[in-house]
Each structure stands twice: as structure tokens, then as C-alpha cells.
């Protein structure tokens, strides 16, 4: 199959991934039906995670792995969960992307990997205190387009 990432892009990602610290596990949830971008998204994740040995990828099906999808609060396909990996344990950080991370969002996806790898949000003290004190669930949906 033809690569989605050319050599030049792979080189740029390699430079960015020099900052990778801790292991990151990426979970892909696809679906056999009604999922135009599942194949391409999965291939993109395979190519990105092959670039650094601290990155793992596990592939799931939204219907066949419904329990796991529910555990990670995934309800769409394609969906990507960017999780931390501590030893053999995959730790959900609530970080998801629904759809293919293409165009501008591909850069964000690479930054997401670095964020999770660093294990630190980098946020200010006031923001951290507010978020850590939440007593009700918070669902943030950030709508984006590829261009």
C-alpha cells in the first residue's frame, strides 16, 4: 500500500519525537460499516506509531469491542484514544479524537502524543485547581475541520 506520510514528513515527525519521554498507547476504534475514513485513519496511525519505539497501537472494532469502547467512552468511528502506558497498564487520560487527524489537525495529533508522553498538562495553577476540584463530569467537544 502507498504510504500516507512521505519521507520528508517522517523526518519532521522524527525530529518532533526526539522529545518523547514516557510510553504512549494509541487505541484505534474502527467499524466495518458506515466508516469512510476508518482505513485511512488506521493506516495513518500505523505509520506514525512505527516512527518511535515508545509508541504502541492497538486496533479495536467499535461493535465487537463494545465493552472496551464503553470503558474509554468511545461512541464514534473512527475514534482515536491517546493514552498513557505505565508498564503494562494503559491509563485513559480522557484524550480523544473522532475522525481522521488530517491537515492542520495532524500537527495537533503529533502534539497530543508529545503532551501525553510528557505526563504534564503544562496548565496554570488556577486552571489545574479548578479541573481537579470538579465534582461533575465535563465533556469537551472541540469541532475542527481538516483545512
Amino acid at each position: 500500500m502507498e504510504k500516507l506520510l512521505n519521507d520528508q514528513v517522517v523526518e519532521q515527525i522524527q525530529q518532533a519525537f526526539a522529545q518523547i519521554k514516557e510510553p504512549v498507547q494509541i487505541l484505534f476504534f474502527g467499524s466495518k460499516t458506515n466508516c469512510d475514513y476508518c482505513g485511512e485513519t488506521r493506516q495513518l496511525l500505523e505509520e506514525v506509531t512505527a516512527i518511535h519505539d515508545h509508541l504502541g497501537l492497538t486496533v479495536y472494532d467499535l461493535q465487537e469491542n463494545a465493552d472496551l469502547a464503553a470503558q474509554f467512552n468511545v461512541d464514534k468511528s473512527p475514534a482515536i484514544v491517546i493514552a498513557a502506558k505505565n508498564g503494562s497498564e494503559v491509563v485513559d487520560l480522557g484524550i480523544q479524537f473522532s475522525g481522521i487527524p488530517a491537515g492542520h489537525e495532524f500537527g495537533t495529533f503529533i502534539q497530543d502524543i508529545l503532551l501525553v508522553s510528557g505526563r504534564d498538562s503544562g496548565l496554570g495553577a488556577q486552571t489545574r485547581a479548578f479541573l481537579q476540584g470538579l465534582e461533575k463530569p465535563l465533556h469537551l467537544q472541540v469541532f475542527v475541520t481538516p483545512t
Binding site: 487520560l93 480522557g94 473522532s98 498538562s121 481537579q132 470538579l134 465533556h139
Partner: peptide
């Protein structure tokens, strides 16, 4: 996504390709 990291038990941050 940075925000979710602070309290993943309570926060889910989902980018959605519109």
C-alpha cells in the same frame, strides 16, 4: 486535551472532525 489530563476521571476531551 491538556485539561482532560488534569482529571481524566471527570473530564473527557474529544476533538471532532466536523
Amino acid at each position: 486535551h491538556q485539561m482532560a489530563m488534569e482529571n481524566p476521571r471527570m473530564i473527557r476531551a474529544e476533538g471532532v472532525e466536523a
